[in-house]
């Protein structure tokens, strides 16, 4: 089936089998390998992407469902050569260890601070509760997302 999906602002057309999972379309067809595959059973959340701005687990969505819609992957966070505040904050607060869960954590975090720029620790933990970090590095992930919120607010004020 012929589909057209806007990924990180660019339109991509492809002929896909209906059973192609969105995560495989992103990784194999588009070669955007920042989106990871972990459990493949909707549990770990490392395959999270934004579908029309909303976090979804791309191992549990068919590529054909994204026809005519927009996807943001981790590769789309950087804008005009500048890192997204969430990326800067993850670097500043050492929000990653092995890095496997990081793309998903940053996308979920970016969505959270868009809705709520000053989240409490509980609110961050609630928002990332569908994403697992096997390094158990949650403390710094939470700090990173909170810092990103502050940075984004400061950035938009200036």
């Amino acid at each position: 089936m012929q589909i057209t999906v806007t990924v990180n602002g660019a339109e991509h057309s492809a002929d896909v089998e209906p059973r192609t999972l969105l995560v495989d379309f992103i990784r194999s067809d588009l070669r955007l390998t920042g989106t990871h595959i972990g459990c493949d059973t909707t549990a770990c959340g490392v395959c999270t992407v934004l579908l029309d701005g909303t976090p979804v687990k791309s191992c549990t969505v068919f590529a054909v469902q994204a026809n005519g819609r927009s996807i943001t992957t981790v590769e789309g966070l950087k804008q005009n050569g500048d890192l997204h505040p969430i990326q800067v904050a993850f670097k500043e607060e050492h929000g990653l260890q092995c890095g496997f869960c990081t793309p998903a954590m940053m996308l979920v975090g970016s969505k959270l601070i868009e809705d709520n720029p000053n989240p409490t620790e509980d609110e961050v933990r609630w928002a990332i509760s569908g994403n697992l970090c096997r390094c158990t590095g949650y403390v710094n992930i939470v700090k990173s997302i909170q810092l990103a919120g502050k940075m984004a607010t400061a950035g938009s004020d200036s």
């Binding site: 909303t54 976090p55 979804v56 549990t60 609630w126 569908g130």
Partner: peptide, 9 residues
């Protein structure tokens, strides 16, 4: 119900 990301769909 499930987790926040699954709840989106």
């Amino acid at each position: 119900i499930s987790d926040p990301i699954v709840r989106n769909l």
